[in-house]
């Protein structure tokens, strides 16, 4: 038997649920703290470069269209609603709601990624065209990468939900996934505002 299962067994053997807050969920919270700092770093760089340059964006940059990103904001927000709905569901022991909720949320996540791909392809400037382009692509790009990670996480949750691994008492992974997904939606709102609206 591997050391891991033995340790795991030992741990659950004398863990009284009241004293043993869920480690996975707390881990997710700390992980999100570090993720926020990563984006904070990127935002700081963005604003620093912006403050330094005389024209932002550079004069020959084609104007941004807000159509797709606005649409996408809607997609992402609706997907968080489904995620919340799913999470509530499993909290009451409703496994079906969990399956449908995460399923729809994941699909919406994929739609978000697809639209994002079109948006990025159509920007009309590139990461190497200017500091503006670099900062823009980094914020968009790293968010996309994270969302992709979030979708993978949701698919895993969905798969586990389909084989019935979750219940009202055992749903920390769902909570962690949901939390991360809300976090990504929150980051997107800031990215969207900073890149598309902030004058």
């Amino acid at each position: 038997m591997s050391a891991w299962t033995k340790v795991g067994a030992a741990r659950s053997a004398d863990a009284s649920p009241a004293r043993r807050p869920n480690v996975g969920l707390i881990g997710a919270v700390f992980f999100i703290v570090s993720e926020s700092m990563f984006f904070l770093g990127l935002f700081l760089a963005y604003f620093y470069l912006r403050a330094l340059s005389k024209t932002w964006p550079p004069p020959d940059t084609p104007p941004l269209s807000t159509v797709l990103p606005t649409l996408n904001t809607g997609v992402l927000l609706i997907s968080t609603l489904f995620m919340a709905w799913a999470e509530r569901g499993i909290a009451r022991g409703d496994a079906r709601r969990l399956q449908i909720g995460t399923g729809v949320a994941a699909v919406l996540g994929l739609i978000f990624l697809t639209i994002q791909a079109f948006e990025i392809a159509d920007l009309g400037f590139a990461p190497h065209s200017s500091a503006y382009g670099s900062a823009f692509f980094f914020l968009m790009g790293f968010h996309v990468v994270r969302v992709f990670g979030g979708v993978v996480f949701m698919v895993i949750i969905l798969a586990r939900a389909l084989i019935g691994q979750f219940s009202a008492r055992r749903r920390a992974a769902v909570q962690a996934c949901a939390l991360y997904w809300y976090f990504l939606a929150g980051v997107w709102l800031v990215v969207f505002w900073v890149l598309y609206w902030l004058k």
Binding site: L49, L52, H128, S129, A131, G133, S134
Partner: peptide
């Protein structure tokens, strides 16, 4: 070839 540190900053 991004431009984060290539400009004068």
């Amino acid at each position: 070839a991004t431009q984060f540190f290539n400009t004068a900053n």
